[in-house]
């Protein structure tokens, strides 16, 4: 039995004539302690997939199994790092993390809770900004707060929805390492959604492409057989890395082209003229 299992998931939005199938026949299984990355184009339904797994959405058909039990609603066992940080702007960094910690460990004293908050804020190197509001922080700092908030809840599985998408390359690299550190420390299970193939290659054990929607479905998986810890600079010379990277990019290009040609075919207009108006003026 897998740790997380998605069986024949379909997700539709809208009703009646406006109904569109966003995700179609998604099958995925993740083992405990694994780091899986799902790579896809923007608008291919990645966020929908994440929300199905964390319980914010329910599938139209099919089922999501977490540790063998169907998922109904959200759970503290599955921590989420949102794409757009989703920090509460009226709370300080510390208060944002504290609110989450307090919900997960309601029985702990305030002192213990504060200790956890400080530990995780320290971990993302934001101790100096613990009393600042999100508005006073840069994008990278905000995302680190979101990371701290998700991890302070000590979830068994970390679900990340393009967590580093809006960051500059340097901050991005640092945060990738931080996330890998935490994941490696107590071998949690992680699911990373990204649009950056290199990010997936650097961080994950497996990469699964999401074919673009509507009717998005998962493509064939690519195993990444590269020893951990991985070194960013050495990766470029690793033959395994090159091979996998080329294979994935080729695959993504192919489905991109396929989609383009499909789209072209679809928009061929009929060759008609408004006959009724000819010669009227």
């Amino acid at each position: 039995m897998s740790y997380l299992e998605l069986n024949n998931i379909h997700k539709n939005y809208g009703q009646g004539d406006y109904e569109t199938e966003v995700l179609s026949n998604i099958n995925l299984s993740i083992e405990e302690g694994e780091f899986v990355a799902i790579v896809g184009f923007t608008g291919s339904g990645k966020t929908t997939l994440v929300n199905l797994i964390n319980g914010l959405l329910e599938p139209t058909r099919g089922e999501v199994l977490f540790k063998g039990k169907p998922v109904f609603g959200t759970s503290h066992e599955r921590g989420v790092i949102f794409q757009n940080y989703s920090l509460l702007p009226w709370l300080t960094v510390g208060q944002n993390v504290f609110m989450a910690v307090k919900e997960v460990f309601p029985k702990k004293s305030k002192k213990e809770l504060n200790a956890i908050v400080e530990e995780y804020v320290e971990m993302v190197n934001l101790s100096h900004a613990i009393n600042k509001r999100p508005k006073e922080l840069s994008g990278g700092m905000r995302q680190r707060v979101a990371v701290a908030r998700a991890l302070a809840m000590k979830p068994e599985m970390i679900i990340m929805d393009e967590p580093l998408g809006a960051l500059d390359a340097l901050t991005r690299g640092n945060l990738q390492d931080e996330i890998l550190n935490i994941w490696g420390k107590d071998k949690r299970t992680a699911l990373l959604i990204t649009n950056d193939v290199d990010e997936g290659l650097y961080m994950a054990d497996r990469i699964i492409p999401l074919k673009p929607g509507p009717k998005a479905t998962l493509g064939p998986e690519f195993k990444i057989d590269i020893e951990r810890p991985r070194d960013k600079t050495e990766l470029n010379d690793n033959p395994n890395f090159k091979k996998t990277r080329n294979a994935i990019i080729e695959y993504l290009m192919d489905i991109g082209n396929e989609r383009k040609s499909e789209a072209q075919e679809a928009i061929v207009l009929p060759d008609v003229e408004p006959k009724a108006f000819v010669g009227r003026f």
Binding site: L56, T74, H76, S86, L88, L91, A100, E103, M153
Partner: peptide
């Protein structure tokens, strides 16, 4: 969504998230 992921109770949700925002 944050309130849902944190599993805030209805009272908490109103006073900690909805009213401040």
């Amino acid at each position: 969504n944050v309130a849902k992921v944190l599993k805030l109770g209805p009272f908490q949700k109103v006073f900690k998230v909805i009213l401040p925002s």
